[in-house]
Design a protein around this nucleic acid. Structure first.
Lengths: 92, 92
DNA sequence: CGAATACTTAGAAAACTGGCTAAGTATCTA
DNA sequence: TAGATACTTAGCCAGTTTTCTAAGTATTCG
């Protein structure tokens, strides 16, 4: 789990919006792009950041690339947040 | 609740470390500074970011300034994370 | 094969971040 | 009141991030 990559990915509002758009199911890059004003290239950059954090997974379907939430990282994220506040002996 | 301020504040590893240091109780700016290598001024900047996100509260005690976790925001943060992944009708 | 579609990668500019030093404010103590 | 202590604020600089356009890759279809 790439803690820093995850928090960094979540720091941008557009990327959080992408995650929310994916909550109800996978979407192609193009479908996601419809929700945003900036260029496909900029979107693609955001996808890359989300992928680096393993928050999303991709799958090529013909000429399309389908993005979906990586739910297994969700637990990691929840754990990280808990860890920030939960009282315990310092581990580091 | 300042969503963007919260995610931005959590994006920096030093700031997450500050939060962890505060889990077991309040600390003065000076006590916190002992855990870091950089200048008091830089630390102070990080404190300001955490305060802007309302993740910490401060209280002056004589010449010291005491920092403590603002636990009431903890629920907000958890909620924000849940919201990113939980399936539901898009609200925005 | 060649053109069209769907994305990504590269490279550059503008804005933001995170560090520093120096200077300023608040409080205590002699 | 003067000096020391504990922080914060201001201003600066280097490195990162976010956006764009242009160029490149993968896949489909005629």
């Amino acid at each position: 789990m790439k803690q820093q990559a995850i928090f960094k990915a979540l720091a941008d509002p557009s990327r959080r919006r992408i995650l929310k758009l994916l909550r109800n199911g996978s979407k192609t890059a193009g479908e996601l792009a419809e929700a945003f004003d900036f260029s496909a290239a900029s979107l693609s950059h955001h996808f890359a950041v989300l992928k680096a954090a393993e928050l999303v997974r991709t799958e090529r379907r013909g000429q399309y690339i389908v993005y979906s939430l990586n739910m297994s990282v969700f637990e990691d994220v929840s754990g990280l947040v808990l860890e920030l506040f939960a009282v315990r002996e310092d581990k580091r």
